[in-house]
Computed example of a mutant assay.
Amino acid sequence: MNMKKHKILIVDDEPKIIRFISANLKSLGHETAACSNGPEALETIDSFDPDLLLLDIMMPGMDGFEVLRRLRSFSNVPVIVLTARSDSSDKVQGLNLGADDYLTKPFSLDELFARVNAVLRRFEGRTAAPSSTSSEIELGAVRLNLAQRRTWLGETEVKFTETEYNLFVLLIQNAGKVMTHEQLLSDVWGSEYRDDVEYLRVAIARIRQKLKQIDDTLDLIVTYPGVGYMARSGE
């Protein structure tokens, strides 16, 4: 499959890692830029306008978590965090802050390409025309504009990341039906993620939290423990 060329920003304080990732992504035809610290990365995002960010967590000064926290206040650009293999809590914290995926160091080229391709593929569909006839879906107080990829709850716009948006649309389009973990993971993340339930739990929690900030009486997404999730179809 010939993927289109993307702009990828690599943020890491180790020049070796930057060279390794950059050379290999360029070999696939991608354009890369690199930053060695958080503040520089946040500035570069505006000028470089990347399609994907590879963000190291352990950096002196401003760490990757803080970069991610600030980034998510103004941008939905997909992010893969780079974490040390020893610390699995980094992975969860990264996902909680709105990362789309993670790579544990040291990683192989195959892992790097697989993660990058999976995340880019997830966002390739962004400009695709909606499959339903109408570009708007309404469910109770929720309104989705599929053409603009925007979501409102009442009069207030909900700011979802790309992954959260894709997941929310899938649930709303299937309101009243229980969607299994495997279905949701395969459709939103890709078939190779079908057993990574943690991704799904974190994304659902973030969606619920964002809806609750606007209307704390709304109980839209129902959990079926061990099975999956459903969006309520009625008011």
Rank of each mutant, 00 (worst) to 15 (best):
L185Y: 05
F168V: 00
T161N: 02
R121P: 08
P130S: 13
N145V: 06
S131G: 09
K177C: 09
V188D: 07
L171C: 02
P130W: 09
T151C: 12
D187T: 10
L185D: 09
D187W: 00
E157Y: 01
E138V: 10
A147L: 07
E164V: 03
F168G: 01
H181S: 11
V197A: 11
T156P: 00
F168H: 08
E157W: 00
M179T: 08
L171H: 06
L185K: 02
T180Q: 06
S191F: 13
T151F: 00
E164I: 00
T163N: 09
N117Y: 03
S132E: 15
E136P: 02
N166Q: 06
E192V: 02
A175F: 02
E138L: 10
L144Q: 04
E164N: 06
S132I: 15
Q148P: 01
W189G: 01
R122D: 12
K159R: 08
Q183N: 12
A141W: 10
S186I: 02
A118T: 14
M179Q: 15
Q148L: 06
I137E: 09
A141R: 11
N145A: 02
F123T: 14
L139E: 05
N117G: 12
T156Y: 11
S135I: 00
L170I: 07
L146N: 13
V197W: 03
V169P: 11
Y165A: 03
R143Y: 00
M179W: 07
I137R: 08
R149T: 10
W189T: 09
E164G: 10
Q183P: 05
Q148F: 00
T151W: 00
V169W: 02
T163F: 03
L144N: 05
V169A: 04
R126Y: 07
V178M: 14
A141P: 14
W189H: 04
L120V: 02
D195T: 11
L139F: 01
P130M: 07
R121Q: 10
E138H: 05
N117E: 14
V197R: 08
G154E: 02
Y165G: 01
V178T: 14
L170T: 15
T151S: 11
L167A: 07
D187C: 05
K177Y: 02
Y165W: 06
N166S: 06
N145F: 07
L184T: 12
R143K: 14
T133R: 08
S134D: 15
M179H: 05
H181E: 14
I172R: 05
T161G: 08
G140F: 02
T163Y: 04
L171S: 09
F160G: 13
S134R: 06
T127E: 15
T180Y: 05
F160Q: 04
V188F: 07
S191A: 13
K177N: 12
V158S: 09
N117C: 06
Q183Y: 13
K159E: 10
L144F: 03
E136R: 03
R150K: 07
